[in-house]
């Protein structure tokens, strides 16, 4: 399985990748994107099975990326990892087709709860 980790913070991408490993998802290919636009392009070129994305990013936000992907016909599995987890944002994410929203701060248990069933 290939997972595309999207965040404009390199530090946060490292933490997400580390937490994936700690949660036991350590035998998957990881690719990275630096913002929503990069993620949109890499869904086309890298063909990931799952996108984990920050919400608030320059160039293109995570929700704009998800909406652009669905408008283009992509049904790639998509989940948010973001510093905000308000009910409004969770609803907006779900309406746009996201499978889950993980709010920062998170740990490996948070990842397991969200990803079990999504990652085989």
């Amino acid at each position: 399985m290939k997972i595309l980790v999207t965040d404009d913070s390199r530090v946060m991408r490292q933490i997400v990748i580390r937490t994936l490993r700690q949660a036991g998802y350590d035998d998957h290919d990881i690719v990275e994107a630096v913002d929503g636009r990069d993620a949109f392009e890499k869904v086309g070129s890298e063909k990931p099975d799952l996108v984990l994305s920050d919400w608030n990013m320059p160039e293109m936000t995570g929700i704009e990326c998800l909406e652009a992907l669905r408008a283009s016909g992509s049904q790639v599995a998509f989940g948010f990892v973001t510093s905000e987890g308000s009910p409004e944002m969770r609803e907006k994410a779900a309406n746009a087709g996201a499978l889950f929203l993980i709010a920062k701060p998170f740990n490996e248990d948070t990842f397991k709860d969200a990803l079990d069933g999504v990652i085989a």
Binding site: S9, V11, M12, N56, S83, E84, G85, S86, K104
Partner: peptide, 19 residues
Amino acid sequence: DVADALGELANVLGGNIKS
């Protein structure tokens, strides 16, 4: 990395305070 890490700490604090 230092600017990125400090910025992310502020970002996560900000996101949770915003909520």
